[in-house]
């Protein structure tokens, strides 16, 4: 890649990063540019992904090789597009019905297996090795089982949560909050890692090799905001006076 393209890429990356961060100050034209560019680029990206990863290998190429079976899912898929023509939009129901039926048929056995049977088995299994477990491990297993029952009580909608049920349900909430706290910390750490990545890029693009892209963009935006604030101040005061 030539140096010019490297510099152009650096300016684009630094510019879009700073434009998106500028939303922290307020909504502004730079953010709008980045937002709409992102939207368009995202759509374009997914369009080519669908075209080259799905349509071409799974529909077009098999059809060229006389594999007519792909016509069945293709027609069902195309039936969804009839939504746009009110007169024949009823055809789309066939596609939707197939999708819902297929989805339910696939999800129900898997859900029963993973949401019920595996959960129960996973909760009671550690106690099967109780004879060889240490007291902390046994306590841990019992705590998990107790937590499972309490949390499930919280999500039990068929009885009013009063008296003993309320106490068990409240215990469930404590268990949930402990989990949510841990999950929050974990995710925030991951987000900070992403933020460092952006800062690292901005720092890299602030070098002379990239013609001080970061500094120029930030300074340019500050000048814009200052000027914009100064020029619209008078208008705002006039509007307020009216």
């Amino acid at each position: 890649m030539s140096e010019t393209w490297m510099i152009a890429g650096a300016w684009l990356a630094a510019g879009l990063t700073v434009f998106l961060f500028s939303f922290l100050y307020k909504d502004n034209p730079f953010f709008k540019i980045a937002e709409h560019l992102y939207l368009g680029a995202g759509m374009g990206w997914w369009f080519q992904v669908y075209l080259y990863n799905i349509w071409e290998p799974k529909v077009w190429k098999p059809l060229l090789n006389y594999d007519w079976t792909v016509l069945i899912p293709s027609i069902l898929g195309l039936s969804l597009v009839t939504q746009f023509i009110p007169r024949i939009s009823w055809i789309s129901r066939y596609g939707f019905t197939f999708m819902m039926g297929y989805g339910a048929g696939l999800a129900i056995p898997a859900g029963l297996s993973t949401d019920f049977i595996t959960q129960i088995g996973g909760t009671i299994k550690p106690l099967s090795a109780m004879a060889s477990s240490t007291p902390p491990a046994i306590f841990n297993s019992l705590l998990v089982a107790f937590g499972v029952i309490c949390v499930l009580f919280y999500f039990f909608f068929s009885v009013e949560h009063k008296g003993a049920v309320k106490r068990v349900s409240n215990m469930g909430i404590y268990f949930l909050m402990i989990y949510f706290g841990a999950a929050f910390g974990n995710t925030v750490m991951a987000r900070f890692s992403l933020l460092y990545g952006r800062f690292d890029d901005l720092y890299t693009f602030s070098a002379g090799q990239y013609l001080y892209a970061t500094q120029f963009i930030i300074v340019g935006m500050i000048i814009y905001f200052a000027l914009h604030g100064f020029l619209t101040k008078g208008k705002k005061e006039a509007e307020a006076a009216h």
Partner: peptide
């Protein structure tokens, strides 16, 4: 949920 609670309780 009731089934899970009862199964866990008696299972352990």
């Amino acid at each position: 949920k009731l089934l899970v609670m009862v199964s866990v309780f008696f299972g352990i």
